[in-house]
Each structure stands twice: as C-alpha cells, then as structure tokens.
Amino acid sequence: MLPRRVLPGLRLSLGVTLLYLSIIVCLPLGALVWKAASLGPEAYWAIVSSPRAVASYRVTVLCALAATLVNLVFGLALAWVITRYRFPGRRLLDAVVDLPFALPTAVAGIALTSLFSANGWLGAPLADLGIKVAYTPLGIMVAMTFTSIPFVVRTVQPVLEDLDPAIEEAALSLGAGEARTFRSVVLPLLAPALLAGTSLSFARSLGEFGAVIFIAGNQPFSTEITSLLTFIRLEEFDYAAAAAIASVILLAAFVMLAVTNLLQARASRHLGAA
C-alpha cells in the first residue's frame, strides 16, 4: 500500500506541470517529428544526405570540436586560476565567466564580428599576420568558443574546490614532480568533471545559431552551419526539408543529452566519493 500522502496539492501541481510540458514542449517536438516522418524514408534520406546538408554537418561538427578543445584547455586553466590563486580581480573574473550565458547571442555575434573583421581591433592585427577570422570557419569556431566558455569552468570548479590537498602533498612528498603529480594524480580526479563539461560545451556548440551566423559568412559548403541551413529552407518555404534537417539536429541533441547525463552521473558519483 502506498503511504498516505500528507501534503496537499499533488493533483494541482502535477496537473499544471504535465499540461505545460505537453503544450509547450511535447506538442511542438511531436509536430516536428510528425512533419519529418510524413516525408517517407526515401525523400527524407535524400534531403538529409544531400551534399549541401552533409557539408553543413561537417562544418558544424568540426568547428564545434575545435571550439570544445579550446574550451577544454581554457576552461580548465580558468577554473584552476580562480580556485587556486588569490590575485586582484579574481572575484570579478569569477563573475564575468558567466557573461557568455548572460549576453544574448545576437549581441555576442555582432560584437565578435566587429572585433574580428578585417578592420576590427583584433581582426586587423591578425589580418597583417595573414589570418582571416571573420567569414571563415575560424570565425565560427571563435563564436562557438565564446558561447560555451562557462561549461567546463563551472563543472570543474566545484571538484577543484573539494580536492583534498593531502592527495597532492602525498604525491609530491613521495618524490613525484609537479608535472607528474598533475598528470597522474590531479588530472584523473578532474577527468569525470572535465568530460562532463566538455560534452555540454560540445552540445551547445552544435546547436549555436545567433552568435555564429553574423561571423560565419554563411557560404554553402564552406561556412554554412546546419542550423542556418534549416533557417534557409524555411525562408524558401521548403518546409519538408526544414523539418528533415531540424530532425537531424534534434536527434544529435538527444544523443548528446544521453551522453552528458551518463557522464554527469559518473562525475557526481566521483564527487560523492572524493
């Protein structure tokens, strides 16, 4: 027998929750899947495997991978510096790490484009070195990097804060050098959190739209991301193609969601054990 429920409001709160989720979340996603499914397998496959679509997957995935790699290193360094060192401006740095989440993506997009265009503050000196950033895949990478900076920092930071100093001290006093201690003692302890943060960062980069489209150049086959291709198909009133391509992004998102949940479950077990 179920224990008698003491608290009131189950029916009201659960009802509101299910109604809201049905109308706001499930209905539109179901409609998208329905629209994509109504294409039939052959037409669907023709759209999602068309050369332009495949090129857009390649651009999106490669740029997201590169951005995630940058964030892995930068994020770890940021989390390390914020938790380990005391210096003027540390707390300000800690606060502004979240700026990429707080700043609307369109604002980030025009700011990065202006900054990295051939006559921008950073774009001009880079252009002198022969490096073009805006309107190239490098620009897409920069935008993706910006919008996902906080993920690795914020997943690694709590683990670094809880790291027992005695572990490092033991390794160092037993004769391991600093590099070796970091590599074989500290890094394995951070690995689950690093992995979880990295996968969140990658997932976000795959779906990023606002920040990317301003800086990307948006040339089919070279600087066109998959989200933009969906948008273009909608503007051409080719709704079936838009549904098919959007369903691919949706599928990728669900795969990434499963991966990150798995990694986070492992990370939190690690956190509990440490």
Partner: peptide, 27 residues
C-alpha cells in the same frame, strides 16, 4: 528529465517545431 529537455534543444529546432504546430503547414 522532460523538464530539462528544452536546454538541450537548439533554438532553431524549437522555432521550426512551433511552425509545424501553429503555421499554415502545421497541425
């Protein structure tokens, strides 16, 4: 898990999905 799903979904997918509910070519 269902409550957190919108975080994982690209805004472009969300917008497109709404077209297929309330748009002329939608439900």
């Amino acid at each position: 898990v269902l409550i957190e799903i919108p975080f994982s979904i690209s805004p472009i997918v969300a917008g497109t999905a709404y077209l297929f509910v309330y748009g002329l070519q939608g439900l």
